[in-house]
Amino acid sequence: MAKTINRRSALRTMLYIAGGTLILPACFRDSGRASIKLTHLSIKESDEVMLESLVEVLIPADDTPGGKELLLHLFVLKMVDDCHDPESQKQFEDGLKQFATWSQKQLSMPFNDAERNQQTELLTRVEESDDESLIAFFKIMKRRAIQGYMSSSYVMTNLVNYEIAPGRYNGYFPMDN
């Protein structure tokens, strides 16, 4: 039986979505959790929650929003669902499930239950594992999360100071060493 949706948090989620990304076709899980409608991917809610933690570990909040607040896990899902070929989508799905199993084994507890520093340390070891789909998933997730972050409204407006009409071209802009 569907629980009642907390309208305040649903509204806040929609606003962040509107501010951060074009309005995603939103839907709600049975738990009441806001999510997006996917056409090709099939993701369990628990894996989605894990993905949300993953993007937060990858891009943690400090005095600026992190992956969770910017809903990067939904961005990752949307881009994989719409822009990846079927083979890549399968790798992502399999790898995500694999990550749940693998991280549980490595940490002796579900990924979400571990301490932040343990989670961070675990991510540095993903590419050492033998599992192809795990590594493929991680690469896709990382690439899309970073893309979502760098092109988000918050980052482009406040951190990068994106200028849509620079009115100049400086071919000798100095790189910091």
């Binding site: 990304t21 949307k78 881009m79 822009c83 070929d85 482009m156 994106y162 849509i164």
Partner: peptide, 17 residues
């Protein structure tokens, strides 16, 4: 012409379809 990258549904990328 005046859309910012985050105003594009896929940030400018073309879908697989």
């Amino acid at each position: 012409t005046n859309l910012y990258p985050y105003e594009l549904e896929h940030r400018g990328e073309i879908t697989y379809a």
